[in-house]
Amino acid sequence: MIRILKFSFADLARSRWSYIYFAFYLVLGFTLLFLNESLGKAIVTLINVIIVLTPLIGTMFGTMYYYNSKEFTELLLAQPVKRSTIFLGQYLGLSLSLSGSLVVGLGIPFFVYGITKSGEIWDFGLLLVAGFFLTFIFVALSFNIALSNENRIKGFGYSILMWLFLAVIYDGLFLLSLMVFNDYPLDKASLFATVLNPIDLARILVLLKLDISALLGYTGAVFRKFFGTQLGLVTSFTILILWVVLPVLRIVRKAKKKDF
């Protein structure tokens, strides 16, 4: 598996898109830090970028990479290698290269501007961890979709729809239900709904660490009470890990049965 991971990683490392993705974060990081006078503000701006962009890029790359390397995969399948090894290797190779672009691309500008000496290092770290998880989750989900759909167009369509649902439509339904059930106490319900969606969960985890959390008022107090405890943190990270593990398990199972 390690060898296939290396292949995938080396393949991606040579591809133009990885560099573009890396360069994008590098430029974004430097620009934000240049325009904002403080690291904290740059982190707040980055929340939006990370929670929207990392899932989208993960989804796109995941689907694209699967379909593009299909011939190579079929060649590998002819060799005496376990199927799960091939697909897991590819999955990890892609996820690691994407999250590597994120961490290094943003890490360099923030390091240059002295994040290691400032108090915001933990907020920044959490932001990167959130981006890391989101990448792994969405690459896994898109691999699933691509494995289940031979038709590229369909596969792309479903992937984009999946991203759209989790990033936008989910929040819309969430907001709508909050407004419809306005007469009931909704703190717990909104907490529950937030925890279920990885994008929302990542967003809230980072928001609560920042100054901006004061805006959340008493709903925020409920959230802080939950996420401030050991149980809350363990729960939220468990859920993020589950979001990675479950789709990956399905990749393995699906790959075993699939006719190529």
């Binding site: 929340i47 939006n48 929670i51 929207v52 990033a167 936008v168 439509i169 929040d171 819309g172 969430f174 907001l175 909050l178 407004m179 306005n182 909704l186 703190d187 909104s190 937030t194 929302d200 967003r203 809230i204 928001l207 901006i212 805006l215 959340l216 008022g217 008493y218 709903t219 925020g220 959230f223």
Partner: peptide, 16 residues
């Protein structure tokens, strides 16, 4: 109208 909806602060849907 619905104070709880503040948890969607900085969500893409809200921007839209």
């Amino acid at each position: 109208k619905t104070p709880e909806s503040i948890v969607l602060l900085r969500s893409l849907f809200v921007d839209i």
